[in-house]
Amino acid sequence: MDLATFLQQLANAASLGSLYSLIAIGYTMVYGILRLINFAHGDIFMLGAYFAFYLIASVALPWWVAFLVAIAITSLFGIALERIAYRPLRDSPRISLMISAIGASFLIENLGVVIFGGRPKSFASIPLFDTVVRMGSVQVLSVSLFIPVITILLLVVLLFVVNRTKTGMAMRAVSTDVEAARLMAIDVNKVISYTFGIGSALAAIGGILWTMKYPQLNPLMGIMPGLKCFIAAVIGGIGNISGAVLGGFLLGFIEIMVAAFLPALTGYRDAFSFILLILVLLLKPSGLLGKKQTVKV
């Protein structure tokens, strides 16, 4: 493999890793606050892409307006999802929550099939993102350069909000101890809605950027990325935002690099994430950046 191809693959890995990170953050934030694996998160990613698609194709909005509106709608959708599917089960055993999440995921996917149609759709081409950029002998789509930059910007903003604002402090308090947070007059419901809103917005951004790079939309497109990104979040340390980013990049890298250097194993590509997950769960369940949680009896 020559240098050019290697750099090419590196660029691909960086893009994929960023996309995975954006989605993984949503998982980790929701898990941190509710101890819930939001199975429907991958489908929210899909919705973000579809909303943008329809806003451009049917409503004929300029692309940047469509993007912002799509992100906003998806964010609201995530908040609504929490209200309907998870809030009523706040005091129930965690298994009920998980079942509701799985049900919600299937519901959204199949609603997508019914409403959007099962046949793949092509996202419109947007010149800003579609130009081929040449750097020496390496060729990348401009979007591949945008993605990591946007992701890192978003991450910086998010970390600032979480670590240095009052709302962020409330979010961290609720993740640590819900009841004690209530005693501080924190509106726990509002904090949870916020978390879902932010996570869903990030997933929507991920969805939109994803379709810029892989322009085929279908209602089931969120399943595999969703699962993989949850794995990324676990690998990085569930509940830890930086961990989610780390996990996302790691997973993206491994996926692209293995496919590039070990083409014989391509058939097993999807299994890698799972194998990695199981290894992490067995060796360091708290993840790469996570802390050990002891259970007090």
């Binding site: 402090m169 640590t176 947070a181 005693l183």
Partner: peptide
């Protein structure tokens, strides 16, 4: 509350 319940991560 009983047992202090300070926010350990903060």
């Amino acid at each position: 509350p009983e047992g202090r319940r300070v926010f350990a991560n903060l």
